[in-house]
Write a protein that binds this DNA or RNA. Structure first.
Length: 275
DNA sequence: CGAATCACCTGATCGC
DNA sequence: TGCGATCAGGTGATTC
């Protein structure tokens, strides 16, 4: 089965799903933690700070989900395998790490088998070590500009793929959407960032936005243990053109796709379409 | 400083 | 059938 990890479109889909699920008047009656840590320790004050609080909003920043309350916010990263779902009464799955018991009797479950995710408190001032220093949102046309990207790439010898996956440069793009963006833009992943021309960077920005928008519109991509908020049925399986397709024919020219390790991750590209 | 490498973790897959 | 090795990847720490 084709797999896709939670990158910007998937997190955005979870955000939208949770928001619809929660509705207008949701109150967190109680927070139940089933373990003290994920990849990092979960603060013991988290349950106390969020219990009894009304949910005032659900946001996304980069690949982070933020559930706001007047007291503090819940900052959540899905890591590789994190998911939120509406748990059926009495349902407890392996790797359920946190339950938000709502005042209306419903229960939201955070599950993350691999525990690469994160649950933390975000103070009302909005500052957090994981958020400070993040780059612009790729869909923010005022912040993620070709001027900005060209200045960032200048004199950098790292592969362009490494740059666009670097959350300090631009957020939300992981191994999958980096590969898809580069394919669509006709750029080889190993090209040195500093050697990219302005027109090519412009094209890359456009294609990255396009593929992210497509995936959001399609409801995010998915993996076998990834559930959309609400656990709905029939979630869409996004069609990738290069990710995990090494050895298969290019969708555009039918040349056999090649692969290697770029920026420390498995990477596939078309040797003919991408220069 | 930039760039590369490793650690974290479980489940899926592969070879024998 | 079973079992060990390998791989996947976001982030953050470490190394060069």
């Amino acid at each position: 089965m084709l797999v896709a990890m939670p990158e910007l479109p998937e997190v955005e889909t979870v955000r939208a799903g949770l928001k619809r699920l929660i509705g207008r008047e949701a109150v967190i009656e109680r927070v139940e933690l089933t373990r003290p840590d994920l990849r990092r320790r979960i603060p013991i004050s988290l349950a106390k700070r969020l219990s009894g609080q009304r949910i005032t909003g659900i946001r996304r920043r980069a690949k982070y989900l933020i559930i706001d309350t007047p007291s503090a916010s819940l900052l959540c990263h899905l890591g590789m395998t994190g998911s939120w779902r509406l748990a059926a009464p009495g349902e407890e799955l392996a790797h359920d790490h946190c339950y938000l018991h709502l005042a209306d009797g419903r229960r939201l479950a955070f599950r993350d088998p691999r525990r690469f995710g994160m649950l933390d408190l975000l103070e009302p001032d909005g500052h957090h070590p994981s958020l400070d220093g993040l780059g612009p949102e790729p869909l923010d046309e005022r912040a993620f500009t070709v001027d900005y990207l060209a200045a960032t790439c200048r004199k950098r010898k790292a592969p362009i793929k490494a740059l666009i996956m670097d959350q300090r440069v631009v957020v939300g793009i992981g191994n999958i959407y980096a590969q898809e963006s580069l394919f669509r833009a006709g750029i080889r992943p190993r090209v040195a960032a500093g050697s990219m021309s302005r027109p090519r960077l412009t094209r890359l920005i456009e294609e990255a936005r396009a593929v992210l928008r497509d995936a959001i519109a399609a409801g995010g991509s998915t993996i076998s243990d990834f559930r959309h908020a609400g656990g709905g049925s029939g979630y869409f399986q996004h069609r990738f053109q290069v990710y995990d397709r090494k050895g298969q024919p290019c969708a555009r020219c039918a040349t056999k796709l090649v692969g290697g390790v770029v920026a420390g991750r498995g990477t596939t590209w078309c040797p003919r379409c991408q220069k």
